[in-house]
Design a protein around this nucleic acid. Structure first.
Lengths: 116, 116
DNA sequence: TCCGAATATCGATGAACGTCGATGCCATTG
DNA sequence: CAATGGCATCGACGTTCATCGATATTCGGA
């Protein structure tokens, strides 16, 4: 079965490969694709935007289910993928799980797409 | 059968929706996901980078097949998706089809991911 | 210590996707 | 006008993925 890449695996790989500067190697393209794949789903994009717009760019799972209109297991699944890709961190307080934006994570991806 | 969105459909939709400013609507997320999906494949990322690194940020299909190591129909398929997403344009000269980078297309996507 | 609530994991299912070989289309060349 | 070469489309196949219900887990409260 395919394993989810860890945070360090993905973010470390995706942080240093420019897209339009020179041809990407197969390995570089593979790593960057994993990062982009995490952003290539409408549910995950909405989850990211909701978390980003929340207090302290942080939100509880219970506050995310209703806005996206998906089941709780599905939301949990998407949050796991976003966390593995390095865009979110998880901190459990009591019975609640809070997911927070990783500062600079989206900015790093953003910079990979431009020439400068 | 699912139709490919046209250039105007996608680029017009993806040019005005910030990600971390406020929660995305279902429609905005869907459109942005289509754009990100085009970038979420290693073969397409390599194709983009090769075209970007070519003379005049433009390349013939025949020059793209060997570097990515895929069949000609598959390369043609990926180029169509990148074109539909607004990242490439196609111009046929003689028997050859040249794909060129759309100026500013990647920059627009890049800006969607950051707060400023 | 037992119960309920919040969340993660599991297993299954249907849809979407990447890939290729075969084929069709079109322009150039002989 | 026939032949060739570059490229797009088609049909099929195997894989990946999003989604859900059911279940496991973990924590707080009574």
């Amino acid at each position: 079965m395919p394993e989810l890449l860890t945070v360090t695996d993905v973010s470390a790989g995706a942080c240093c490969t420019p897209l339009v500067r020179e041809p990407l190697s197969a390995e570089e393209a593979e790593q960057l694709a994993v990062t982009m794949k995490a952003l290539a789903d409408p549910a995950r994009l909405r989850l990211l935007s909701i978390v980003a717009a929340s207090e302290n760019t942080e939100a509880c799972v219970c506050d995310l289910i209703e806005p996206v209109g998906l089941s709780q297991p599905t939301v949990s699944h998407h949050l796991k993928i976003l966390t593995a890709a390095g865009f979110l961190t998880r901190s459990k307080r009591g019975t609640w799980a809070y997911y927070a934006l990783v500062p600079g994570a989206l900015d790093r991806v953003s910079k990979l797409l431009v020439a400068s």
